[in-house]
Design a protein around this nucleic acid. Structure first.
Lengths: 134, 134
DNA sequence: GACAAATGGTACCTATCTGGTATCATTACT
DNA sequence: AGTAATGATACCAGATAGGTACCATTTGTC
């Protein structure tokens, strides 16, 4: 069970690369060469980032992507929400139905506490922080 | 992404029920009635618990399951390891290969810290604790 | 205007994982 | 012998994560 899934992971790497790049526009081909990923796959991730307002794109000759926000304004949690649909460690389904004992369930209470910690930690991480550590 | 998967969850409920039961031996039929789960599925979970030394079983007429350990000696983490193969939040696979940047990866360092917290919390939870809260 | 280089959009495919079923063998008591 | 229980194992199905293919659209250069 991974906390950070591939799409999120690749997105982080792509953004870090774009942020560090000298170029005005970074193309999928550049990212493919740098990150060693299949281009169509990379492109879909970039498109999702563009729709989410994290990247700006330009089509056509010499087109590509650039950041639409400062790295300090891009949070890891945003990317997790975008690519993984958020984080819900406590989701409790019993045979397709939400478990009827959820409110009193002792396990759930414990897991909820853990989840709160994880969320707090993740919310504190933005891309500027990750750049520094690089 | 669930921290506690169904098998683990059911196992906890089953153990709590057996621990609270007056009967010497609790059968799959009893558990089915109590937990509203399909019996064959329940039975497989019980068998896994038996093999792991958490339950003792008796076959034949009036047979069933009983605890092989005190609830305080059964840890939630044991069940997670048994049914979910443990917890590895940082597993980092890049296109089937372990990511070559793992050692220096800033995300991974952060996630590792979170994982350590989660493990510590989980290791502190045993079934006696959960019984009290019931 | 034709062409090439780039992204936009969408539908599809595939392997793995999670949850669940079916079947038969074995044991134990009456 | 018959019945009530578990042991073992193989199988099945739906969901999800990861990845591919294809065509439409836009933009700049010649």
């Amino acid at each position: 069970m991974r906390l950070i899934q591939s799409h999120t992971d690749y997105a982080v790497r792509a953004i870090l690369f774009i942020a560090a790049s000298e170029k005005e526009m970074v193309s999928s081909a550049d990212l493919e060469a740098e990150l060693d990923l299949p281009r169509p796959f990379m492109r879909r991730i970039m498109q999702d980032l563009q729709k989410a307002g994290i990247l700006k794109s330009l089509r056509g000759y010499q087109g590509g992507f650039q950041l639409a926000k400062a790295p300090a304004e891009i949070f890891l949690m945003d990317l997790i929400e975008l690519f993984q649909g958020g984080l819900d460690l406590t989701e409790c389904i019993f045979r397709k139905k939400v478990c009827p004992n959820c409110k009193t369930c002792p396990i759930r209470r414990r897991v909820k506490k853990i989840e709160n910690y994880v969320l707090r930690e993740l919310q504190g991480i933005n891309l500027a922080v990750l750049m520094q550590e690089k």
